[in-house]
Structure formats: C-alpha cells, structure tokens
Nucleic acid binder design. Structure first.
Lengths: 188, 188
DNA sequence: GCATCAGTTCATTTTTTATTGAACTTAATG
DNA sequence: CATTAAGTTCAATAAAAAATGAACTGATGC
C-alpha cells in the first residue's frame, strides 16, 4: 500500500504521506492532501492560461507543494500520471527554468525542486520562450517591402498608412528588448 | 469575378485588389499579395505563441495589412474563412482591444481597423486576459492554510519551507500589480 | 408585411494537441 | 554478464480546441 520507493531523498524517514485522508476528499487522483490539490489547481490554471499542457501545471504544483525534492517515480505515483508524460513534462519545465535537478548522494535517481523566485521564473520564461519568438518575428518583419503589396490599388493615403504600419512592425522588436530587462529588475 | 461587395468604406473606388497575381504565388487562400500573406504569417505565429487560435492572427493580420477598414464580409471573402469563425474571431479581437469598429456613414455594415499602437495592445491584453487570471489565482492562494497539508508527516524544516512557499505564492499577485503599469508606461 | 442583407449562435466535424503505454536505452548491482 | 532499476522515445489513442455551416435574429428597405 505505502509506496516502497523513496519519497524524499537521503535518509528522511517519514511515515508515507500517501496514507491520510481525513482532511481531504481524495477524489480522482492519488492520495493528495487538500492543500496539495489546491496548489496544483492554481498552477494548472496558470499553465492553461499560458497555453501549456495541464500536466506541466500538475507537476510543478506538486513540486511546489512538497518541501522535499521529488524523484521521477514519486511524481508518476502521486499524480497517477504516465511515465511518458512525466518525462516530457520534466523536460519542458527544465527547459524554461522552472525546476532544478537536485543530486542526492547515494541515490541513483534524479530529484527535482521547483524554482520559487518569481523573478527567476519570469526571466527564464521570457528568455527561453518569448525572446526566440520575437527574434523570428523581427526577422520576418525586416524582410517586408512595400513592393510586396499591390500598390497600384492604393491611394496616396493608403500608401502612407501602409508605410506607417510597416515601420511600426519593425520597431516593435526593439521595444521588447527594452521592456524585458526592466520586468526582470522589477521582480527582483 | 471581382467581388461586388465593398472592400473599402465610403466612396473609394479602387480596382478590385483581388485580381493581381504576378508578384505573389497565391497558393492556398484567396488572392492575397505576398506582403499581405507575410504580415498575416507574422501575426499567426504570434497568436500561436500566445496560445490563441490562428484565425485571430489571420484576421488581425489582414486588417493590419490593409490601409482601409474592412467589413465582416470582406474578411470572410479574402481569407476564405467561414462566417462563424470570423464572427467569433472579431469578437475576441474586440474583447482584447486589438481592433476598433469604424462606422461608415451610409453603410449598414460594421467596419474594423486594427489597433496598431503596441502600448494599447499590450495594455488591454494585460487588463482583459492576464489580470483576471491573476485575480482568480490570488483569491485561491489567499485561502490556502498550512492546516490543509499533512503536517504530521513534516519535519520542522519541511514546515518552514512550506510556510515560505505559501507566503511567496501570496505575494506574487501584488508584484503583478506593480509590474503591469510599468510595462504600459515603457511602451508609451 | 415580405424579402434581403448583416451578422450571430451553436451543434457537428475537423484538426490539433496532449496523454498513454510498450519497447527501448543506459547505467548500476549482484 | 545477466538482471534490475531509472528514465526516454515515439507510435497509437484519447481529449480538447478550433473551424464549419446551417439555422436563426433582427434590422432595412421596398
């Protein structure tokens, strides 16, 4: 019943946190406390809002709600999620800098801790996810020439409007470069 | 062949911008110029990155690429998109403040123009889409109590870690309130 | 008051995206 | 070196989202 595999790294004993029930309904998933479930729900809501798969929110939420670092297998069991999803979820979270691997001496497995500093989270998210988009976008915008439009159908005013818009499109990228560092600083 | 319905409001004549081909391959969609297609592609890429449906990007892109305001039916025809999608797309774009309706005297239809000021775009996006999320999130976080966790399984250190994290979760919302106005200001 | 135009709604279908699970590394262990 | 444990990969499936289109609403004009 109690998971035999470790839940916390090293030598921490702990009576399996899986077997309490009185303060939590424990409906769908595994034996999560109400607190754990609520934290997970918060992060699921966030990832959904960001257009990311809910599994990311669940994994990050569980890590956030758990003071001890967790190993791959712990996550699979507590969230009752497939190994495949957990594997991919952990990779994504790592790639956006939302979690950090923790090495535990004498344990083969890899453990994970959430990054809980808002500044770090946001900064690496901007760098890893948003910036590449903006770069790609800037490149495309740079290639735009009025000649690519059917200018013969344009009035003089139309032409001015178009020029103005193309110019705007090209400056947007620079602005991002100004704003991002400030955001990071403000969250520090 | 040439769409009979108006393309631009009022009295603007213009030889139908639908019938040129020499400078654009014109593959899948309607008779869009390369410039139009490229601008649309840029905005589609952006909306996808934001997790929004591509139809939003297409509609906004077309409006952005067109100096004259466009009416519902114009959009349906030029993008070869269903009325349903255009209707819902326009509603979403309006709700996030990305387009503005333009009234044309003597024309029953509603015309639309893109909002091209980055500051306005971002500000209303933050206000309409992000802020509500953050509010909801703050409310949930406020309800979290250590009592909702299985404290009996926690060491003293675990307990401190948890307290710290819950505290952090609760402050995140306030930080957003600080950062958002600054972003707006910086983009002005 | 009947027909048409302008647009919305929403059930259905299509498309996309996420999740699963079984087969497969790779590394440690006896 | 065979065995097991830890984790990854990826084709197949399930689930979610978006697009379609037909039926509808509500003006306008005739």
């Amino acid at each position: 019943m109690a998971r035999p595999s470790s839940f916390s790294p090293g030598d921490v004993p702990v009576s399996s946190p899986t077997e309490r029930t009185e303060d939590s309904p424990v409906s769908g998933a595994a034996g999560l406390s109400t607190g754990e479930r609520e934290i997970i729900a918060i992060f699921v809501q966030m990832t959904q809002a960001l257009g990311a798969p809910r599994s990311l929110g669940e994994i990050y939420g569980l890590l956030f709600a758990t003071p001890q670092p967790l190993a791959f297998q712990d996550i699979v069991e507590r969230l009752e999620m497939s190994k495949g999803s957990v594997s991919q979820g952990l990779r994504s979270l790592r790639s956006i800098g939302a979690i950090t691997p923790v090495v535990v001496a004498g344990d083969r497995r890899e453990f994970f801790e959430p990054v809980v500093e808002l500044r770090l989270l946001v900064t690496s998210f901007l760098r890893e996810r948003i910036n590449p988009q903006i770069e790609a976008w800037g490149t495309r915008a740079k290639g735009l020439k009025p000649a690519h439009f059917n200018l013969e159908t344009f009035s003089a005013t139309d032409r001015e409007t178009l020029d103005g818009r193309l110019a705007k499109l090209k400056t947007w990228r620079k602005r991002a470069g100004v704003v991002f560092p400030v955001i990071s600083k403000l969250l520090g």
